Computed example of a mutant assay.
Amino acid sequence: MAVLTDEQTMLRDMAREWASNESPVTAWRKVRDANEAAGFDPAAFGTMAEMGWTGIIIPEAHGGSDFGWLSLGLVIEELGKTMTASPLAASAVAASAILLGGSDEQKSAYLPRIANGELVATLAVDEGGRHDPGKIAASVSGGKLSGEKAFVAEGDSAGLFVVAASDGLYLVEAGEGVSVSRRHLADFRSHAAVSFDGAPAAKLEAGGERLLDAVLDRAAVLAAAEMLGMAGQSFDTTLAYLKQRVQFGQVLATFQALQHRMANLFSEIELMRSAVEAGLAAIDRGGDTRAAASLAKAKANEVGHLMSRELIQLHGGIGMTDEYDAGFYLKRMRVVEQMWGNAAYHRERFARLSGF
């Protein structure tokens, strides 16, 4: 477990208190039932911006707090516990692309608006059903970008897209040449198919040939942080249920077989935490983040899948009902598991980076 500063502890506790009191799972139910394309509560996101969360990784010169990726990960983890939907992670990843590859003019134009929550930004990379940044067909000619992006998180509400093209990353504003189509996935969040047809585009010139890799690392680790929050909450919910559910005249938690399963889950989640926090810390340190990011996402995918499956199984029939919260965690976990690379993708990437 990472050693937190006093300021990071305060931030984590503030996020935990706000999420528990102001954005519990019942709030997500209201968002889900409203069935809006944006997939989040704008008022709640406005509150996050007022608390400074939208500017955590943005430098003070551009309106942020420059508090680091571990700090942002702590917030994302707490929001994951209560299924709080927001474009916080997507905007942070897009902001990181501008920070790493943008010009001074681009930074000044977009970062302050992302930091204060005025602008929702997102990353548009994948063009098929699986994460594969090596296969990018979108192209730019004469400053106009054309191509299709199959699954763009928060694409329905984004005002700015960081788009992967065949020759690098480009900034494209919503509007001219941009068409957004809503996708309906199991988690009921915003996932859009976005078509670019001669959209005005400005290239992120800095950052070098590994710019896309660096940005995707940040996206993967933030996704892993959300999964960590969901896994931790799923464990706590399951443990509480086993302690009060009586079957065959005994409390379920007294059965040794179930105790062993819960002990294994606890150990796996702690390993997951170590990998995720190491990934966040690696980004804060700078340098090559690829191995740490792939380790974090691979472990998060494996443990998140296991914990969400056990969440349903150990709750039995009630876990399958919409009246109970377990299904929300299972559905969201399965979607995030595929975002920015599944376990097989990141295991292979980690092995390749390690020389195997």
Rank of each mutant, 00 (worst) to 15 (best):
V75S: 05
Y241P: 00
L145F: 03
S308C: 15
M230E: 11
V335C: 08
L74F: 13
T321C: 01
L212W: 05
L70W: 01
E105M: 03
A292Y: 04
H191A: 04
A344P: 03
V335D: 05
Y324P: 00
V140N: 03
V3K: 08
T84R: 09
S354V: 00
S65Y: 11
I114A: 05
D236F: 03
M48I: 00
E127D: 10
A27M: 11
G64P: 05
I56Y: 09
R113C: 06
S234F: 08
S139D: 10
A153S: 15
A296R: 02
S96C: 12
I114T: 05
F266P: 00
E176P: 02
L265F: 00
L271Q: 06
A300P: 07
G63M: 02
G147V: 06
M272R: 07
M83C: 13
E148N: 13
G208Y: 10
A253K: 00
R273H: 07
G52P: 09
S190M: 09
Q313F: 13
H346D: 15
R210H: 14
K149G: 02
A192S: 14
L185H: 09
A43K: 15
F356L: 04
I56C: 09
A153Y: 04
N116H: 09
P133K: 03
D132N: 13
E127P: 10
E17S: 13
G168K: 02
L242C: 07
G102M: 03
H315L: 12
L228D: 08
Q233W: 11
D213Y: 04
E205K: 04
A343K: 00
Q233S: 12
K107Q: 13
T26I: 08
P42K: 11
S294V: 00
I76Q: 08
G155Y: 05
A95V: 08
W69C: 02
F40P: 07
L79Y: 12
Q250A: 13
L74A: 10
D6I: 08
A89Y: 07
F151P: 00
G229D: 15
V163D: 01
A225S: 15
L99K: 07
F248Y: 14
L353H: 14
R273V: 01
G304D: 11
E348D: 15
D236A: 14
K243W: 02
L311C: 04
L271R: 05
A257R: 10
E302Q: 09
I312M: 14
G134V: 12
S234G: 15
G208W: 07
A97K: 06
R309N: 15
S108E: 15
R332M: 12
T237K: 05
L295N: 02
L160V: 02
A38T: 10
M307F: 03
E268S: 06
L99C: 06
W69D: 03
L204D: 07
L222G: 09
D104M: 02
S190D: 06
G39T: 10
V178N: 07
E176M: 03
F196G: 01
R273Q: 12
D156K: 03
A326Q: 14
G117W: 04
D13E: 15
A220S: 15
A95L: 09
A192Y: 04
E209F: 04
L280S: 09
G155I: 05
G52T: 07
A109E: 14
S157D: 13
W53M: 06
